Amino acid sequence: SVLLTFDDCYQSMKEYAYPLLKEAGFKATAFVVTGWLFDAPQPYEPEVSRTLSSAELAEMSDVFEYANHTDHFHERKDQQGRSMWETPAAFAQDLRSCNQHVAIKDVFAYPFGFYDQQTIATLEKEGFVLAFTTKPGSNTAQTKPMELHRAVIPFSLPMAAFEQRFRNEEMNQ
């Protein structure tokens, strides 16, 4: 099985991924930083990294399901995500704020892939059952559900390299 996921809900997701996924009949999960969403759609400018609006996410809900990627905790310092330096209570409040705006309320993606045991404990206390890292590789029955792997595919990866990466993953199972 393959699960397609997207982080942050940038405009390029609507411009490029949405029409292709819709045409192919594929579904995907997008992890939303709800505090970054615009109140109204903004003009698309490919040279600018800009997120979508809540209304645009609703328009794409025939393809995308939305899950928690924090409300305002998508920050990093050195090799730490904000969930690692803030109090568990502050992180829990941020999770609850984001969950008011997403349909999938028990799945999370760690911003920048940063987490620690305190982050995991807070997620579990808040009822999350799955969390995605940025660690490469496939998931098996032995993979910890709060430390799921993801193969990160940057937008700049040529299609041939993507196909080779996918074939390598299949052979390693």
Rank of each mutant, 00 (worst) to 15 (best):
S61A: 14
M146S: 02
Q164I: 09
V63P: 07
K77S: 14
L52K: 00
N172Y: 03
V2H: 10
S138R: 11
K135H: 11
T51G: 15
D7E: 03
L52H: 00
T140F: 14
S53D: 01
W36G: 15
Y16H: 07
F155R: 12
F73S: 09
Q117W: 07
F6H: 03
L4T: 00
E163P: 02
Q164D: 15
A28D: 11
A141P: 08
F91T: 10
A55C: 03
P136K: 07
V2W: 10
V129G: 00
E170N: 01
P111D: 04
K22M: 04
D7Y: 00
T119E: 10
P136G: 13
K14Q: 12
P46M: 03
V107G: 02
D7P: 03
Q80L: 15
E47F: 08
L4N: 05
Q93Y: 08
H72N: 10
F132C: 07
E169W: 10
T87Y: 04
K14S: 05
L130P: 01
H101V: 07
Q117D: 15
T143D: 05
E75L: 14
P19V: 14
S156T: 13
L37W: 05
E15W: 05
Q173A: 14
F6S: 00
F112D: 02
L4R: 00
D7K: 04
Q42K: 15
N139W: 08
D94M: 13
V152I: 13
K105S: 04
V48G: 04
A24F: 03
F73G: 08
M146C: 03
E147M: 13
E126V: 05
F112H: 13
E147I: 08
T143N: 05
A89I: 02
P145W: 11
R165L: 09
Q11T: 00
Q164P: 08
Q42V: 12
V129E: 05
R76Q: 11
R96L: 11
K105R: 15
A40K: 11
N139G: 04
Y110M: 13
E169P: 03
E47P: 02
Q173W: 09
A28I: 08
F162H: 09
L21W: 00
T5N: 00
E147H: 09
F64S: 02
I104T: 07
V63R: 03
S156D: 14
L57R: 10
T122Q: 08
Y66W: 07
G137S: 06
